[in-house]
Write a protein that binds this DNA or RNA. Structure first.
Length: 136
DNA sequence: ATTCTGACA
DNA sequence: TGTCAGAA
């Protein structure tokens, strides 16, 4: 299987919402705070990569652990601009409705006990998600 | 249908 | 943070 380019921005905010469990408001707000820097297609459409999702997951955990924004900024490396734009259509949320992958991922997010492992586990599933939703 | 920005009970 | 408006 071809490895999934972790830095390729192809996920819409709607999918990221489902993948991370964060609200659209939070995802956009964290960007305002400079915690995340998604690629912008058409100059306005936000597109996230697996790295972005993993980063958001880490931010979510730190917020839960009552870290301050400045502390998170200090710990997390400055967000790097995604190198790859979106050459292919992005999978829509409808494609995910039938997928049990999303449910599995969400369960992982809500049931894990060791937060440091979460991103690894989730990225693995995201890789599977990509293989199953590869644009024709 | 989905996402974007700005704004406010 | 939630949510609504108005536009793309």
């Amino acid at each position: 299987m071809d490895p999934v380019p972790r830095d390729m921005a192809v996920l819409t905010i709607g999918i990221v919402r489902q993948l991370t469990g964060l609200t659209l408001r939070q995802i956009r707000y964290y960007e305002e705070l400079g915690l995340i820097c998604p690629f912008r297609s058409n100059g306005e459409q936000r597109l996230y990569s697996i790295n972005d999702v993993a980063r958001l997951l880490r931010i979510k955990d730190m917020i839960d652990q009552e870290y301050t924004i400045s502390q998170i900024k200090k710990i997390l490396k400055p967000p790097t601009m995604p190198t790859e734009p979106t050459p292919q259509p992005t999978p829509s949320e409808h494609d995910l409705d039938d997928s049990n992958l999303l449910r599995g991922i969400r369960d992982q997010i809500h049931t894990r006990t060791d937060r440091s492992w979460s991103t690894t586990i989730i990225e693995g599933q995201l890789a599977q998600f990509y293989r199953n939703n590869r644009p024709k």
